[in-house]
Design a protein around this nucleic acid. Structure first.
Lengths: 107, 107
DNA sequence: AGGAAGTGCAACAGAAGTATTGCATGTGGG
DNA sequence: CCCACATGCAATACTTCTGTTGCACTTCCT
């Protein structure tokens, strides 16, 4: 199982346009930093740093393949982040519901 | 309805610990920047800037109340962000499934 | 009216993030 | 063996983010 990455780290990783570009590509198919760099407007080193951030957030996994290092998006990690948000949103809704009920009782 | 906020903006807003603290509090009940500042280790102005970021991301709404300005978390916005992530994750899974099926066929 | 409380705006300092260039290292194929 | 390709590491420049202080302005209440 993956570690319990702090929400802030995961969402900070998702909070950059270039990383979204990268993430969508490694979601489609595994790719190396060099391969991604040729189709993005940044250097290989920049891509590598982004991939490192995504990896630290637990959103992608590395996979050595000969002399190249391919990265692949982890669907379950994104799904877990989604579930976390949904749960918090549900908590807000429930609290709002309680407040509403109390207001009606006081009428 | 709320605008179509770009994913990067929304998740960047969620990518900060202090903002999570603030967001959880305004999720529990509406509060002003001043009120939040007394129970957080930062100044009112810093809190106000965080609230502005959250508002720009469509995650909280303002509500004038006499001379004070209260902020309230929008559960539906967080829920929408969750749905977006879940959809992307599902897309990755489907693509992986197709790749797996093709691999079996080639065996 | 006048003080207290709340907000708005601006300037500044420090930290962190993003991207670059340059060079070193490792690995696979002819 | 040697060359090409891919990655690793370091130094640097620039921008953005986070937080502070200081002051002006509005609004409520006595």
């Amino acid at each position: 199982m993956s570690q319990a990455h702090s929400p802030a780290v995961v969402f900070a990783a998702l909070g950059d346009d270039t990383r979204w570009e990268i993430l969508q590509r490694v979601g489609a198919r595994a790719a190396s930093a060099s391969a991604l760099a040729v189709e993005l407007p940044v250097t290989r080193q920049a891509v590598a740093r982004h991939l490192e951030v995504l990896h630290a957030a637990g959103l992608v996994e590395k996979e050595r393949h000969g002399r190249e290092l391919r990265y692949r998006a982890i669907a379950a990690a994104l799904s877990a982040a989604a579930a976390e948000l949904e749960q918090i949103a549900a908590g807000w809704d429930r609290r709002l519901e309680r407040l509403r009920a109390r207001a009606e009782k006081e009428d």
